[in-house]
Amino acid sequence: MNKAVALLQEKFPEEVVEVVEFRGDTAIEVKPDRLVSICAALKDGHDTGFKYLSMIAGMDYSPASPRFGVVYNLYSHKHHDRITLKTRLADDLAPVIDSVAKVWSTANWHEREIYDMMGIRFNGHPDLRRILMPADWAGYPQRKDYPLRGQ
């Protein structure tokens, strides 16, 4: 079994929702509440060592509910291993999740982009403002209900 899965099932058995293996990729879905502790454990764990956050993607699964999700891709240079960590956010109208910018500095810009594009807020983010769109832009362009050619 994947070391990251083993670590999470040992330390956070209540949090793991689902583990999916597809085409050699391991995707672990966890509950959002203790995400920062989970990420810190994966980063510092001896057998995992995911020191590198590859990317964070905001997801709009509309019309499904819970509608929004956040996906983290982590890489371990120690084992040359990669996992996808997924969460679904409970609130469809005002999606919010804790920021992992304290765990990996690179998360700062990824989270700003998701806030800008999807309107997902990150608690504890040091500087949560729009990044690609102008500061006074209304709406979140990458949501599924946002028309392709703008409003």
């Binding site: 085409r23 990729d25 995707a27 891709n73």
Partner: peptide, 30 residues
């Protein structure tokens, strides 16, 4: 299903996270 494929681009890691719902258009491309 969903996959993440990273390659060594000239400037560093270039990654594609693609989610498919089985249809002819991707559900999400990051």
């Amino acid at each position: 299903g969903e996959v993440y494929q990273a390659i060594e681009a000239p400037k560093g890691e270039m990654g594609f996270y693609i989610v498919s719902d089985g249809g002819p258009q991707p559900l999400r491309v990051k």
